[in-house]
Each structure stands twice: as C-alpha cells, then as structure tokens.
Amino acid sequence: MIKSLFVFRDALPRKTEIILGIFGFIFFLTIWHMTASSGVIRPEFLPTPFAVAQAFVRLFTERDFASDIIVSVGRVWFAFLLSVVIAVPLGLMMSTYRAVGAILEPFIDFLRYLPVPALVPLLVIWFGVGETSKIAVLWMGTFFQLILLIADDTKRVPTEYIESGHTLGASNGQIMRHIIIPAALPNMIDNLRITLGWCWTYLIIAEIVAANSGIGHMIWSLRRFVKTPEVMAGIIAIGIIGLLTDQAFRFAHARLFSYQRR
C-alpha cells in the first residue's frame, strides 16, 4: 500500500494527491500544536493553532478585519491593473520593435534590481503617507518585472507562426492581433498570476511603513500589544487570500486555454 505511493516518477490518482495534500497540512498543524502546548515555548511566542483560530474569528467580530481586507485587496488590484495596462502594450512594443527594446531594456534591468523597500522613504517624501505612495510602491515592485516578462513571452512565439501569417497575407497589425497575442496569451496570464503574488509582498511593506488601514497595518499595530495569535491569524489570512486568487487564476487559465490539455 505505502510502497505503491513511492514508485519512481510514477503518476498518482488525483484523489490520492488531494488526500496527501491534506495530510501534509494536518501533519504540520499537529507538530505545531504539540510544540506549542508542550510548554517549552511561551504562548506569547508560539500560541496553539486553536488560539490562532480563535484570534482569527475575533479579528472579524471585534476588529472589523473584513474592511481591512477589502482595503488591502483594493490596493493590490488597483496597483496591479495599473501595472498591467501600461506594461502589456510596452512589453509588446519592446519585443516587436528592436529599437524600443534597445532603449528600454538596459534602463529597466537597472530599475528592477533596485530593492523596492529601499524606495519606500523616497516615495513617502514624494507622495506623503496617503494612498498614492502605497500604490506607487506596489506599482514599482511589479511594473518593471512585468514589462520584461511580457516582452519575453511575445519573443518566444515561434517564428513559424509569424512567418505563416506573413505568407497567408496578414499585415503586421493583423499578425500582432491574430497570431502573436493569442499565441503568447497563456504564458502572459501565468506571468500576471505570479506578478500579482509579488504585489502582496510589497503591500505589507507599504502598509507597515505608512498606513492607518489594511491587513499590514492591522498586523503591525497588534504586534505592539504582543497579540501573537492575532498577528499569526493576519499572516494566515494573507496566505488564504493569495491561495484563493492563485487558484482562481489557475481555474480561469485551464478554462480559457483548454486546448493546452493533452
């Protein structure tokens, strides 16, 4: 029985995989619970999973955590979409016209290695502590990465597709709309999913530095009162939101690009 689970590079039934995944979670939670309740570590540092679960409920019932979540999700999506609408056309142009690529690539390569957290003080000087500086942090963190990813996706469209388009009588614009974009779209959507994940990292940084609302702000202010269960519940909430978003993207990807299934 156990042996059949460990066949070298073998496939497993979907159901078994799900059960194993749940088992992994339970295993982790058990270890956590045993460590926390053993008394070796003080509960201020490591509360039990149950204490965290209770704190999770308290966050919603006593501290209006839902509105913090809405604020944070709103910031992430606003900044993310702002990145997308500028990065996608620019990425397409970069891979289509060598000159655009030659101008932008070295500059972007430089910018994207600047650590975004280091830019936060500068952005606060520029934009203050309001919404603008938070959006700016998220935007800086994703835009330059995304533009290169999109350019790369379009560059990887097989030459044969494009040459076929030319010999079938398509104009350059038609090749872009009817061939390059549909061919690159599955990879682009995948990259959008990954970039959206980064947004959450930068969001917490932005909200910790300068905010009076949002998940990051909530976590940071609870820290002051050593409310460890609430802090952990807040972190887990981010994980759950991230997981749900990611799964939604994957689901949409599978539906939109069902032709990739073999």
Binding site: P158, E160, Y161, E163, T167, L168, G169, P182, A183, F257
Partner: peptide, 27 residues
C-alpha cells in the same frame, strides 16, 4: 507564396477546421 514548414506551424489555440479556415482569413 504560401509556405509549409518542417516544424508544426498550425495554431494550437484553433481547432482543425478553424486552422484551415485561417488560410482564407485575409483573402
């Protein structure tokens, strides 16, 4: 001048008939 390549140049996002119909798209 129509071209047929050694590597498969049919479009994966289109079904067989739509791929062939693509040939008429710009006529």
């Amino acid at each position: 001048r129509g071209m047929v390549f050694q590597s498969y140049s049919s479009f994966p996002w289109l079904r067989v008939r739509d791929n062939i119909k693509f040939g008429t798209r710009y006529r």
